[in-house]
Simulated assay, not measured.
Amino acid sequence: MSAPLYQAQAEFFRALGHPVRIRVPELLQNGPLPVRNLLISTEVEASNLSQQLAILRRSGIVSATREGSTVMYALVSADVAGLLRTTRRILTDVIAVRGELPAKPREVKAERLR
């Protein structure tokens, strides 16, 4: 028997539960990018980006294809970009009401997301 949809949704959101794993899909919303561009735009170490991209790939949020020696990343569904835009609008409303960003959640260890 497969897991209920809400459990799958929780896993999906857990996969987005890191700033780099949110930033990458935002960068990919206008089309595929080579990993070197993602590295420059995210300003994280290559090993960290590689780990975050692996989580996004396993969760089905992004896909990777090789073009010669270049690895290109793309969103599997444009709906992910729409979800992130909606989240930004919600948070903008929260900020307007509260006057600040929500409290920083506790850090989640990457091992828990594997």
Rank of each mutant, 00 (worst) to 15 (best):
S2E: 12
A3H: 06
P4K: 07
L5R: 05
L5D: 02
Y6C: 09
Y6I: 11
Q9T: 07
Q9Y: 08
Q9C: 13
A10P: 02
A10R: 15
A10L: 10
E11F: 11
R14C: 12
R14N: 10
A15V: 05
A15H: 09
A15K: 12
G17A: 11
P19K: 05
V20C: 03
V20Q: 07
R21N: 03
P25I: 00
E26C: 02
L27H: 08
Q29A: 15
Q29K: 14
Q29M: 15
Q29F: 03
N30K: 14
G31S: 05
P32G: 07
L33M: 12
L33C: 10
P34N: 06
P34R: 04
P34H: 05
P34Q: 08
V35N: 09
V35H: 04
R36W: 09
N37F: 05
N37C: 04
L38A: 01
L39H: 12
S41Q: 15
E43N: 15
V44T: 14
V44M: 07
V44E: 14
V44Q: 13
E45N: 14
S47W: 08
N48D: 15
S50I: 00
S50Y: 10
Q51W: 07
Q51S: 05
A54R: 13
L56M: 02
L56S: 02
R58V: 10
S59C: 06
G60F: 00
I61P: 04
A64G: 15
E67G: 09
G68T: 01
S69G: 07
T70M: 13
V71N: 12
V71C: 04
M72F: 12
M72A: 06
M72G: 04
M72I: 00
Y73V: 03
Y73D: 09
Y73T: 01
V76R: 13
S77K: 14
A78R: 15
A78C: 07
A78E: 14
A78G: 09
V80A: 01
A81F: 01
A81C: 02
A81H: 03
L83D: 01
L83F: 01
T86W: 06
T87A: 15
R88D: 09
R88Q: 13
I90A: 07
D93N: 14
D93H: 14
D93I: 10
V94D: 07
V94W: 06
V94T: 08
A96L: 10
A96M: 08
V97K: 15
G99N: 00
G99K: 00
E100T: 04
L101A: 14
L101C: 10
K104W: 13
K104P: 15
P105D: 00
P105C: 00
R106E: 11
R106T: 05
E107A: 05
K109W: 01
A110H: 09
A110E: 08
A110K: 06
E111G: 01
E111C: 03
R112S: 06
